[in-house]
Design a protein around this nucleic acid. Sequence first.
DNA 1: AGGCATACCGGAAGGGCTTCCGGTTCATTG
DNA 2: CAATGAACCGGAAGCCCTTCCGGTATGCCT
Lengths: 187, 187
Amino acid sequence: MTPPPRRATRTDAQTNRARILAVAGEAFAASSGASMTAIAKQAGVGVGTLYRHFPTREALIVELYHQEIAKVIDLAHTLAAQLPPLEALRRWFEEVARYGKLKYGVSEVIHAATNGGLDDRNYEPFLGAIAALLDAGAASGDLKPGIDPQDVLLQLSVLWRIPPAPDAPARTARVLTLILDGLRTRP
Amino acid sequence: MTPPPRRATRTDAQTNRARILAVAGEAFAASSGASMTAIAKQAGVGVGTLYRHFPTREALIVELYHQEIAKVIDLAHTLAAQLPPLEALRRWFEEVARYGKLKYGVSEVIHAATNGGLDDRNYEPFLGAIAALLDAGAASGDLKPGIDPQDVLLQLSVLWRIPPAPDAPARTARVLTLILDGLRTRP
DNA sequence: AGGCATACCGGAAGGGCTTCCGGTTCATTG
DNA sequence: CAATGAACCGGAAGCCCTTCCGGTATGCCT
């Protein structure tokens, strides 16, 4: 049952992958409205190549933002350990909201992906991050016990979808409060 | 400034419009996965005709379900007048959730449309329905005063997106409770 | 170094949504 | 009733995402 001797990844494949990611990074930073064909051409590869490396448009995007997502996840654990539960939760929610705002249009498509827009590599840890915050709150009695992290993720995805407008920050804050109050225990 | 004498709508236009709606109704009831081209062909018209009548795929769908949406809106006012505020709100939310479940995939695309997936003709009344329920709750002291109906609509859209699975009903109920508790006053 | 199998490349092709425009038909007017 | 022109019809064409497959280049073994 030894893993079959994997042949080393060909150098041209590595090069192409890197160049695609670079180009896509720029493209999405600029407008998030870049077609796969355009990205492929810009990267000097055929569309087929692009799709073998990233089987779907979402896969490409998720890969691009994988690192940032990881950072957000880490933050949850940090906050949970350092702040009062309610405070930690609100701060983190704000961070999540801000992140989505930054890449509006991108988050749009991330959201559309699998269950909540994160691939398996991100999904579990993300739920874990939420769980950490919820557990801390449950332990202190501030939050209802036994809340399903998935339900919270679902609600968070709403923040993702607040359209960019002058009143977006205010709306975000309001919705955030609604969500938080729903999670809190009722004295 | 008298309105310009509008010429009567041509009969072929009416016929086509009706036939398109009929065909689309069947098509979406069956699977919700019908292409515009397919609908056009099935209705015996060209794609151009289809698009002049309904400028976009969403427009067609919204038109199809306009009556049902109106019914849901009416229900809100009825419930608000007949039941205790909290009860009315929960019942209505359940109805909204059920409606979305029924046409999962359709609601998917409805949701993607304009602000919340409803055209102007539906959007305002829908907000009005929510406002009626919120006002009743605020008056009785059960709900926070001054909640923005749009924020609630945003949260409701989550119910729309719970994936069809064995545990969907349970999840819906849980999320619904979270939303409701967020709207209630904190004693 | 040479040969082989494999992983990779690239573009053609299929299916979808939407736009555009020349040709046609029907309601209106004289 | 006939002529008229606005409104309508239909499909070709553009753009997008994704799949498929013949051709190719490269890592590995001898």
